[in-house]
């Protein structure tokens, strides 16, 4: 049952990544693309955690944490850039 659940989850999260990528390419506006990137990295975190369960290893945990951190910083920087025209002020 666990193998089945893991397989289905891989499929669902993979599909989520594809949909987000489609929105990233499609746009139409800058905030849409930033939001798509945001979704992409959060889904990537889910994918890494899933891989960790599937392979019974915890070595990827730090990777997931780092992606979450960097993704957030990236989203904030991009959103601020669009909203204000500069990142620091």
């Amino acid at each position: 049952m666990l193998v089945f659940a893991i397989t289905v989850s891989f499929g669902a999260v993979g599909l989520a990544l594809l949909l987000a990528a489609w929105r990233l390419v499609r746009g139409p506006d800058l905030p849409d693309r930033i939001l798509a990137l945001d979704t992409l990295y959060i889904s990537a975190v889910a994918l890494i955690v899933l891989a960790g369960i599937a392979w019974r290893t915890q070595v990827y945990f730090e990777a997931a944490l780092l992606i979450a951190l960097m993704g957030f910083v990236g989203t904030v920087a991009l959103a601020l850039y669009v909203a204000r025209g500069d990142v620091m002020h």
Binding site: L17, S43, A46
Partner: peptide, 20 residues
Amino acid sequence: VSFFLLVGAFFTLVGAIGLA
């Protein structure tokens, strides 16, 4: 574990569908 995995995957997918 299977339950939480499936719920998690379902909502991740729903979020992406909403985005799309």
